[in-house]
């Protein structure tokens, strides 16, 4: 029955998004409890439905039958049975539930061998900091395969919730130093780009607060780290023109390489990203669309309309897309 259920649920949805196709240890464990509880619940449903169907067919009033049925007060044996059996079923469920609740709870410091990661939610983008590697990036998380990641979560504004259905259930990011949260992700063995979501209503563009988790081989991860640390904002051609405009207008909020502010997403390696602002196809038209009117793409976000003319926007877009790590 378990296998049948698992089969039934598999193949539901997008393999990079669905909690029904778990990758890695954390999502696997959560999935196994989902299946166990579902199996017990389907058993309960079956019992109820069988009695129910029998009763409404068998005991309907027939035409012309006006007799009064026997007025039964109750039945102790039956009542004890349908109190005791659910208690037993719940105990079967409660034991692994409590065990796993402790098993999956992360302490406030990473253990040896765990990759440390700090996630900060912003309206409406994600900031990812690798404290040991001294890297701060945004919107796309790069992680090595078969690695346990210790995540520290907080928020710069309102409550968000960090959710990668394929890899791990969600945990809220709370504002305030006293309300930090911790969780684990285990990246699994597949090289794959997973979809991540914000799960807590956080304002107008809550629906558009998507991010990506790029799980790569350990070598590729090391290469990414070293090239990220070497990255600078230097550019050539039209892109060089764009760099000047960028430095004058954008750098106070957006960092590239070691330079720049941190109120907006860090744009180092922007040319390699999968999406513009987490939601649009990654091409020049969309980069321009975003710069020209960010509110049109993500209503309520904090980026102002920067007063640039068409050529300047074009140059900045060229510059941003030229920012590649390899």
């Amino acid at each position: 029955m378990f296998a049948m259920l698992a089969l039934l649920l598999m193949g539901c949805g997008d393999p990079t998004l669905s909690a029904l196709m778990p990758q890695g240890e954390v999502a696997d464990k959560q999935y196994s409890l989902m299946v166990l509880s579902l199996a017990i619940m389907i058993f309960v449903l079956l019992v109820v439905f069988v009695i129910y169907v029998f009763v409404i067919i068998k005991f309907r009033k027939r035409k012309g039958d006006d007799t009064i049925p026997e007025q039964v007060e109750g039945n102790h044996l039956l009542e004890i049975l349908w109190t005791a059996i659910p208690i037993l079923l719940l105990i079967i469920l409660a034991v692994p539930t409590v065990m796993q609740t402790f098993d999956l709870s992360a302490k406030d410091k990473p253990k040896k061998g765990e990759l440390a990661l700090k996630v900060t939610g912003h309206q409406y983008w994600w900031e990812f900091e690798y404290p040991k590697e001294e890297i701060i990036t945004s919107q796309e998380l790069v992680l090595p395969v078969n690695t346990k990641v210790h995540v520290e979560l907080s928020s710069a504004d309102v409550i968000h919730s960090f959710w990668i259905p394929s890899l791990a259930g969600k945990t809220d990011t709370n504002p305030g130093d006293g309300s930090k949260n911790y969780m684990w992700i285990e990246t699994g063995s597949k090289e794959q780009v997973y979809k991540g979501k914000c799960a807590e209503l956080c304002g107008a563009s809550h629906a558009l607060m998507d991010f990506k988790v790029k799980v790569v081989s350990k070598d590729k991860y090391q290469a990414w780290v070293s090239s990220f640390k070497k990255a600078s904002g230097k550019a050539t051609g039209n892109a060089a023109e764009g760099q000047k405009i960028f430095e004058k207008n954008c750098l106070s909020c957006h960092a590239v390489g070691k330079e720049g502010g941190n109120t907006g997403p860090n744009l180092t390696g922007f040319g390699d990203k999968q999406r513009v602002a987490g939601v649009l196809e990654h091409d020049k038209d969309n980069v321009k669309k975003w710069i020209e009117d960010p509110q049109k793409v993500k209503p309520g976000n904090n980026m102002p309309n920067v007063p640039l003319n068409d050529e300047e926007v074009d140059a900045v877009a060229d510059y941003l897309l030229s920012l590649k790590l390899q």
Binding site: A27, S37, M41, Q100, G169
Partner: peptide, 20 residues
Amino acid sequence: MGGVTGVMLAIPSADYQFHD
């Protein structure tokens, strides 16, 4: 049916997936 999903939601680690 609403009741049984309620029991499923009572499991914290599974609720990390169900919640919100």
